[in-house]
Design a protein around this nucleic acid. Structure first.
Length: 290
DNA sequence: AACGATCCCTGTTGGC
DNA sequence: TGCCAACAGGGATCGT
């Protein structure tokens, strides 16, 4: 067990990426849509860091009705009835829980709804946040810099080619950048490149149309599988779905966290390198070097 | 502009 | 056994 550590060559911990955020969105949508936020409790300064203070967040949310729960990349956008938007990001260790025990450690935010239910934000490492924006705030926020959603609004080959043109950074780094395509994190970026047969250090701008098509197809395959499996829980104490269950996608990971294990396609030992300070797993045979 | 480095943060672990 | 440095990573920010 453990958060973000390596044991026996297998990293553990929670890494909320697009599938985990999408599953969270669906749960929150079911509970929040049409409901009024009656009472708020935001008890951690850092969780409110995108606003002036926790008090400001609570005041601006108080009494608002939820109109819609959307998602772009790994950001959740909760549209309110007065034109404001509540934006939340799970960071590394954040999760939303429904009707949870409010004494769970690292519970930084609780909203009680007009039907008596509650939604809680639990985030040990506080990389996540809860923010309230008006339109002007939103335009200057991190959400405004996020590119097309990898699942709901994926770019086509020409669009991706255009955003990668001339880029010399490794494709792994560009997949994590959230600008060319939004929603992939460290796990699924590695899985996508494995399925596409592309070495993670390949300069992004050097990929041809066939390779970009393969990347985009792999993105859809990897995300569809992860969502249908309920997301990836690497650690039964870390990432949990809002209903408290664990995702079952870990068994479907081909390369992430499998350094030294045989490639599921060719049997070569999986390699681990570091790209942009992020652990990167690939098959040296199936993903020939740049 | 593009790219890389640095920082934030905490639970867990491996080394001593 | 116990202490503690090292490690994991998304996004913001800054320097080159």
């Amino acid at each position: 067990m453990g958060g973000g550590t390596v044991t026996g060559g297998r990293p553990e911990g929670a890494l909320p990426e697009l599938p985990e955020v999408e599953i969270t969105r669906r749960h929150l949508e079911a509970v929040l849509s049409g409901r009024v936020l009656e009472s708020l409790s935001l008890t951690h300064e850092r969780t409110a860091r995108h606003n002036a203070s926790p008090d400001e967040v609570m005041t601006r949310l108080q009494g608002r009705r939820v109109m819609a729960v959307g998602r772009r990349g790994k950001f959740l956008e909760i549209t309110l009835d007065d034109g404001q938007t509540m934006v939340t990001h799970l960071g590394m260790s954040g999760r939303w829980a429904i009707d949870a025990d409010e004494t769970i450690p690292h519970t930084h935010f609780v909203a009680r709804l007009d039907d008596g239910r509650t939604v809680s934000f639990i985030d040990p490492r506080t990389f996540g946040f809860v923010a309230v924006y008006d339109d002007e705030d939103l335009a200057g926020s991190g959400l405004a810099r996020v590119g097309p959603d990898a699942w709901a609004d994926p770019p086509d080959v020409d669009g991706l080619a255009q955003s990668l043109r001339g880029r010399t950074a490794p494709i792994k780094a560009l997949l994590l950048d959230q600008t060319p395509i939004a929603g992939l994190g460290n796990i699924y970026a590695d899985e996508v490149l494995f399925r596409a047969g592309i070495h993670p250090l390949t300069p992004g701008g050097s990929l041809d149309a066939v390779q970009l098509g393969s990347v985009l197809g792999s993105v859809q395959d990897v995300l569809a599988e992860a969502i249908s499996n309920g997301g990836t829980t690497l650690d039964d104490l870390a990432y949990l779905l809002p209903d408290g269950n664990a995702g079952e996608n870990m068994m479907s990971l081909d390369v992430y966290g499998r350094k030294g294990e045989p490639c599921p396609r060719c049997g070569s030992p999986i390699s681990r390198i570091v790209v942009r300070s992020r652990s990167t797993h690939f098959c040296p045979t199936c993903q020939a070097g740049p």
